[in-house]
Design a binder for these strands. Sequence first.
RNA 1: GGCCCCUUGGUCAAGCGGUUAAGACAUCGCCCUUUCACGGCGGAGACAUGGGUUCGAUUCCCGUAGGGGUCACCA
Length: 542
Amino acid sequence: MERKDLANLIFPDAKDYTYYEEKYVARSLPEGAVVTRFAPSPTGFVHIGGIYQSLIARLMTKDQGVFFVRIEDTDQKREVEGGTKQIIDALYDFDLAPNEYVDENDVDHGEYGPYKQSLRKEIYHSYAKKLLEEGNAYPCFCSPEDLDAIRNDQEKAKERTGYYGKWTKCRNMPVDMAIERIKNGDPYIVRFKSPGNPDKKIKHKDVIKGAVDFPENDQDIVIIKSDGLPTYHFAHAVDDHLMQTNLVIRGDEWLASVPLHLQLFYVLGFKSPKYAHIAPMMKVDGEGKRKLSKRKDPESAVGYYKEEGIPKQSVLEYLMNIANSNFEIWRKQNQDKSMYEFDFDIKKMGVSGALFDMVKMLDVSKNVISRYTAEEVYDASLTWAKEYDEELAAMLENKEYALKVLSIERGNAKPRKDIAKWSDVKNTICYMYPDKFDKNGEFEYQKVTDKDEIDNIVKTYFEKYYNPADDKQAWFDKMKDLAEEMGYCREVKEYKANPDAYKGHVGDISTVIRVKLTGRCNTPDLYEIMQVLGLDEIKNRI
RNA sequence: GGCCCCUUGGUCAAGCGGUUAAGACAUCGCCCUUUCACGGCGGAGACAUGGGUUCGAUUCCCGUAGGGGUCACCA
């Protein structure tokens, strides 16, 4: 009996691997075009890190390369119904549509599929069979208990753990015995027969991490599990070879697997891709920090941003800042350009994980939203409100009025930056709505707090000075006149030079009017507010 | 524990043998014809640590400490 018989016994129906080599023809792409992918497991949770990775992938491929999505569902225990749809939808939500992918009905969009690993079983079998025939893989009959025992012995002997070299039981099993045991019905999996020597070093040049040297891999890792599906490592090698990935962008938890992966590519006769291992986003936890966690950090889920109403553009630009910190300088100078025009450099990405900073994210978002027109703010908040805030949606029903409100101090050279997320909108505009305003509410006045004084100021202003037809300058001059009449200084500077001569200054007076009309002391330009409110509503509030 | 990586202000970070050690967020003060915001100006605030190498180290080398990753029939 020979290895070929063993291979046939294990994978009787597998096609010869050359079938696939011929089937997946070379991509015709311009010189230097990047082919990369996002390869998530459909666990029903789309992590912000996935968007980050996809952003980088999209940036690297832009219009001449290929960005595809491959669903890695080889661990059926973790798979969640609808997981694939969530991933693809999230990518579309963030304008990161892949060039090739599989949809929720398992329909492939692209020529190099299937793009879902569970549908590629026979492909993996063909390559595993090749390895078996060549003697680069072997069936292993060790039970989980056997493996535990080996590890125990290794720990006792203070040696490296794992299935390798002298600790293996099945690596050198005669072919005849293996065949006999399989025929006998003994359970087994198939392992890679590693040619590595850990005393030798391999040199790896990571696109992001730079030069990293490792000992060679000597672990006989499993390549085909008992359910017939491949492990990540094997699937990675086979898929990225066949799909012709030339740049693997993935989380740096994979960095330690590079020696194994390179070895796999080598033994399989594949050209290995370049690797870019990106650092994860971190979060402070007690004394130290840890990766942004699905369980503990709501902001790790992409759904969080949608619910909060943080625009996708804001999330993307924040991520861009983390990826290349010079992005924000560029953005400041190129306010109107698409972020994709930025000259992104993957080599500039940080090698260690950055703390995720929501305050910074919201600041980025304020800037992003400040560039929106009133119409855009209106559309986006309405869309958000329809799903998450009925009250806001109702307020926005009168579009003409809403637009007037949202236009206050917007569209000029120094737009207001008071909205970081759509869920802020209600609070920033609610006092502009008669039915949301309670004129009998207890308001915080700033400086002038005496009730009679307040009444007096308001009364005098509306009886003697206010004229809705005034332009802004006239309006403000009258505010000064009022200040003077009430014993307040017309000019703030003058007041500051001689504070004892007056009860206060024009700002204190206008604040009284402001609070009376809006219920708060911080609002945008009062003149504009009064214009939008209209005389009837103003009268109603005084 | 083995292997690998990392360490510049509260945070994100420029830097790549000689700099007054950028910038952004946060913070504080002042200014900007009314508040808040915006904007402007300014303040405070950092090279983990010990040894080398060097005329000179934040930058190069070694050690120490701290942090992170990885050692599955999970990805």
